[in-house]
Amino acid sequence: MSEMWQDAMVAAFREMASRGVLFLPKLMALVTFLMLGLAIGWLVQVSLMRILNVVRFEVFCERMGLTPALTKAGMKQQIPHLVGRLAFWIVFLFFAFMGVDALDLPATANLMSAILGFLPNVIAAILVGLLGILLANFTGEAVLIAAVNAQIHGARFIANMVRWGVVIFTVAMVLTQLGIAKEIVVAAFSIIFGGIVFAMAIALGLGGRSIAKEVLERRFGREKSRDEFTHI
C-alpha cells in the first residue's frame, strides 16, 4: 500500500515536472515575445514619429482639418504622437499574440490565424475612417466658404449637413468593413440617406421651385444679373 502510494506520488511529480519542463520554454517564448514586442514597438513608434515630423505631417493634418476635428473630439495629443502610439500597440499586440500562440494552449489554438485574417479589415476600416474625416472636413469647409460667398442664409447649417452627411457615410462604410451588423447598417443608411434626398427633393419641388429657377438662370443665363459684383 505504501509502495503504491509512493509510486503514485512519484509518477504525479514526474508528470508535473515533465509538463513544467515542457511548458517553461513556451513561457520563456511568451516573455521573450512580449519583450521583443516592447522593444520593436518602441523602435517603430520613435522612428515613425520622427519620419512624420520630418515630413511635417502635423501641418498636413492641420491643413486638412484632421487636427481640429480630433481636438474638438477631445483628443489633446499631436497626430504624429497618436500615430506613433497606435503603431506601438499594433506591433506589441502582434508579438503578444505570437507569444500566446507559442503557449500552445487549446483555448488559443487558432487565435493568431484568426487575428491575422481579420487584420486587413481593421486596417482598411482605419484608413476609411481617416479618409472620411478628412473628406468631411474638406467638403464642409469648401461648402461653407462657397455658401458664404454666395451670401446664402444658413451657410453654416448647410456646411454642417454636408460634413455630417460624409461622416455618417464614413461610419456606415467602416462598420460594413468590420462586418458589424452589416445588414442593419446598410438598411439604416439606405433609409436615412434616401429619406434625406427624398425630403430635399420634395422641399425643392414644392417650396423652392422659384428659387431653384432663379439660381439656375443666374448660373447659366447669358445675361449677368444686375445684383452681381461687376466691379472686380
Partner: peptide, 23 residues
C-alpha cells in the same frame, strides 16, 4: 461709377465675420 452695391458688400462682409471666423 460702375454699378456697386455697398449694402450687399457689407452684408457679405458681415456674413463672413459670422460664419468664417474659425477659418
Amino acid at each position: 461709377s460702375v454699378p456697386i452695391q455697398v449694402d450687399r458688400m457689407l452684408k457679405g462682409f458681415r456674413q463672413g465675420l459670422r460664419d468664417l471666423l474659425p477659418i
